[in-house]
Amino acid sequence: MARPRRELSLLDSYRVKWLEMSAPSFDPTLAVRFDLLQGSVRAGWPEDRVVLVPAAALTEALGSAPAGAVDALGRALGAGVGRRAAARMLDPQASSLEEFATQLAGEAALAGLGKLAVERWGRALVLAFDEFALPIALVSSVAASAVEAALGRKVWAVILSHEGHAARVLLTSEGAAGRVRTWIANGMAWGDALVKLHEGAA
């Protein structure tokens, strides 16, 4: 039964709206506010002040930054996405795969990080990025921190493949991430690595 749409508010804009369709949808209303009098841009709830930085400028800066700084930037970006996505869900722990993926991808798009999709390869959880705006080196830290911020759980990320601005990231345990990283470094295809990962688990 369709629920009546509630009055829109800043808080409600970060909640899942159950309209006439049962399928989850992302509502970007008032997701980003520009305060021209104050000269500020705020996003999410609770509000985070953001700065519109050209992607090229960030890429150039990251190119000369140490690995720790790059990882820290990625985790900060991912954590903001995950936190805002969790704010849109009534219960992130109990959210379905579709609902979680919808809200997470919506927040990633609002941040300008590109298109995000959630894939399941057997028992393996994979986040697929496309049109990623920043260097691929940040994608693993962004993916891991987003899920950690949304669910409050520690995960490890491994880049399975990347081509241009597209990448696939496996979210798994620390041990499994190490094995897969080794297999891929030895030239194994990422598909075969996932199959082998499942064989070891069986």
Partner: peptide
């Protein structure tokens, strides 16, 4: 056919972490 059908995203993450 895949018998594994996680009802939630969190359960899928649990399965992926168990690999």
């Amino acid at each position: 056919a895949q018998r594994f059908a996680p009802p939630t995203f969190n359960s899928l993450l649990d399965a992926s972490l168990a690999l």
